[in-house]
Write a protein that binds this DNA or RNA. Structure first.
Lengths: 205, 205
DNA sequence: TGCGAACCGGACCAACGGTCCGTATCGTCG
DNA sequence: CGACGATACGGACCGTTGGTCCGGTTCGCA
């Protein structure tokens, strides 16, 4: 029962908003310099349409980010190693973190917007829960690695959007440099030496 | 030349605002549920006085946090080991991180407010620069630990206010439990086993 | 005691997220 | 094919918040 198909124009408008917002976030100084009104204008719709389609600002940003995250998600859930489920934890963990980092590097403003969206901490978002759970599960399968829950949080904290922005954006740290640093850090946590080698798990943009 | 002493009432009001704001942040649900107007009323002054004394909301929060940080700062800069300058890096690093964590645990709302203050990322704040520089310097003195700059960032990221809030606040992780987790994480990074032992570097409140 | 500078404070402003409601469009049924 | 109800549109509107302005008051020095 219920669950009527939404009207055609509703879908069209939703898509228009989506595209416009994506573009606006892509080239802007600060994520909160792009307002809901801006997006509405750019999409050629009324402001109420935004809110009807996405609930609120947070919802819109989450939706945008979810779209960007989706390829990573499928790559992780059903792709080939090192990201896919067939990879050993010791290689999959770095691959996952690298993928997350790359995603944020490629969508800096969006990630920034997502993580600093006012009072809602990132830790309530669905995407974080997914990431954290997966990472934790992987860490649990690595012998001699206690407190996988906290470790997962701490590792993910090293990819926080504003840190990425600070290093890659303001401080000009090159992309691959940053990936290498994170990989090194991860390797240290994973307990061994020489676990570092990996590359190109993600798009480049 | 110049630099006239500020007037007496100016100082008095500044102090009043300081106290009131501190109290308001201490017991509130969300840090941004305490508005500048609230603070002004609580302090019994006009709103403009707030802005005259602290510039803007960020300035006020920074000032409040700086006051809380100050004891830690002196303990680090001229106190006894393990926090003070005479301690070996291998014990001083965990001590420093533990002190930072304790500070955030004891001033959750304030730390939260500080780190999510709209567009200004924490990485621009003076307190962070201080912390990061010190930590980096210490890490550099530990043999076999490369990329101390990134490592310092990553370790500090594990003490991010919203993570602390998520774990200690929403998830009910006990204080000492959390300290132990962070200590364990740090120890892993520092490269050895058995470097964990330490306690009570900080107030309890 | 008088005078200028410094400061006070609340009315005021602009901007933003979010809502309301009259109107236009869709799509379905006779 | 025409008409009618449901659905979505959109821009005017609202409340809140950070931040400013300016007439009046207080301070502190001579």
């Amino acid at each position: 029962m219920s669950e009527r198909r939404p009207r055609k124009d509703a879908l069209r408008n939703r898509a228009a908003v989506f595209t416009a917002a994506d573009a606006l976030f892509a080239d802007c100084q600060s994520p909160d310099s792009v307002t809901m009104a801006d997006i509405a204008v750019a999409a050629g719709v009324g402001k109420a349409t935004l809110f009807r389609a996405f609930g609120d600002r947070t919802g819109l940003i989450r939706a945008l980010y979810a779209a960007r995250l989706e390829p990573v998600r499928t790559a992780v859930e059903q792709g080939p190693p090192p990201l896919g489920p067939d990879a050993e934890p010791l290689v999959r963990v770095p691959a996952l973190l690298d993928a997350v980092l790359c995603l944020k590097l490629d969508n800096r403003h969006l990630a920034l917007a997502l993580e600093q969206t006012g009072s809602d901490s990132p830790y309530g978002a669905e995407y974080y829960a997914w990431c954290h759970t997966l990472l934790r599960t992987l860490l649990e399968r690595i012998p001699g690695l206690p407190e996988s829950d906290f470790t997962a949080h701490a590792l993910l904290a090293a990819t926080r959007a504003d840190l990425v922005e600070h290093l890659a954006g303001e401080q000009g740290l090159p992309r691959d440099e940053m990936r290498a640093r994170l990989a090194g850090f991860t390797a240290r946590i994973l307990g061994a030496e020489g676990t570092q080698g990996h590359q190109d798990t993600q798009e480049s943009s």
